[in-house]
Design a protein around this nucleic acid. Structure first.
Lengths: 207, 207
DNA sequence: GTCTATACGGGGATAGAC
DNA sequence: GTCTATCCCCGTATAGAC
């Protein structure tokens, strides 16, 4: 609805709204955040906010799509994926690194908190999480692991179960780090946790 | 505040309130649930509700303590614990079974949903989760795993990392099942997931 | 695109009768 | 211990001037 085409002055309000809402939603949840407070944080009145979004839910959706589109979204083409998988551990290392980066990145961390809060309350978000996070990651991982099994790099086992084992560990570490951060506590005990879980996993499966 | 001692008639209202609130909190979260709706679900007026609880937050606390006291709370004494650990896999099997039972039990499932929603929004709950869920489970598991390593049942490795690996898998499966349930979808794909992850884990670590 | 003003329903909570 | 009645604030959202 804002009619700024080109580079009109003063634009970016819409982005500011999303940014402010993201912070507030991540702290107090959707229902705990009022349109008033979002507007106040941006520095405008509520009514002005409605020039940019139809209603509060539209703001939610703008953030939800971000929270879901971020992880591992680079659409790795299957070719390079399987090529990478043939190397074994580096494939998992790269996966772990992406996870770790997201965990310690401020923006992604906010999105993660938002996601955890709303996951049980919003069906759209839940579906997105199941498909775009869980299924996508399990698919990537199990594909890679299957190749490693064929190459004789790791011992044979159900690739899906193996993928779940790895993803579960990564996710759990991420959750614990986010909880510490939410408390404002130091995350130093977890600074090498991702690496440790990866090493453990690799020594568990490699032949 | 209710002055029902003994078996006065009509008591149990307090429990009914907790029950009703639990259902609503698990669905809409704390902020998304009004005192009015809780009262309506119980079949009384809001004002009557205040005879049993000082305020809305007191109801929250009553539920929070339940959500935290339930898991693995039977205070297994260290003796029988280590004795059990010497058996190897049955120790982990029992742990997994408790997890599975809680996951598919309706009451525990509600508490879990409530916990996930409020975890990022309430510090008391977060602290409780860290101590009474995470730390307690890691301690139980790492102790058991350490014994198994000494007994030569499983390969040597950092017991904490090993415990995290196992707990992470269990937790992740539980989360995914809860998401499916929240969507009203069948959880059949996960009916044997816990067992599969356990078997995978065991074959990963056993010598 | 932002403002002031306003509508109006819903929220938590209390007073006082029964 | 429950009811009716009421208080007052806060929530989302809109109308219309600038």
């Amino acid at each position: 609805m804002p009619e700024n085409r080109g580079f009109r002055r003063g634009e970016g309000t819409r982005d500011k709204i999303v940014e402010a809402a993201m912070e507030l939603f991540a702290e107090h949840g959707y229902k705990g955040t009022s349109v008033r407070k979002i507007a106040a944080k941006v520095g405008i009145r509520e009514s002005a906010l409605y020039n940019h979004f139809d209603n509060k839910e539209a703001i939610f959706m703008a953030i939800a799509s971000r929270a879901l589109s971020t992880p591992f979204d680079e659409k790795k083409d299957p070719e390079s994926l399987s090529e990478y998988a043939r190397k074994g551990k580096p494939f998992l290392h790269r996966f772990m690194t992406e996870f770790k980066l997201m965990t310690f990145d401020k923006k992604h961390e906010r999105l993660f908190r938002f996601l955890v809060i709303e996951l049980m309350q919003n069906e759209v978000l839940r579906r997105g999480f199941e498909k775009e996070f869980h299924e996508a990651n399990i698919k990537t991982l199990s594909t890679g692991l299957f190749i490693m099994m064929q190459e004789g790099l790791i011992r044979s086992s159900d690739p899906i179960v193996t993928a779940n084992a790895f993803l579960g560990q990564m996710f759990y570490v991420r959750l614990m780090v986010s909880l510490l951060k939410a408390d404002g506590k130091p995350t130093t005990p977890y600074s090498t946790a991702f690496e440790k879980q990866l090493d453990f996993f690799w020594s568990s499966v490699s032949v």
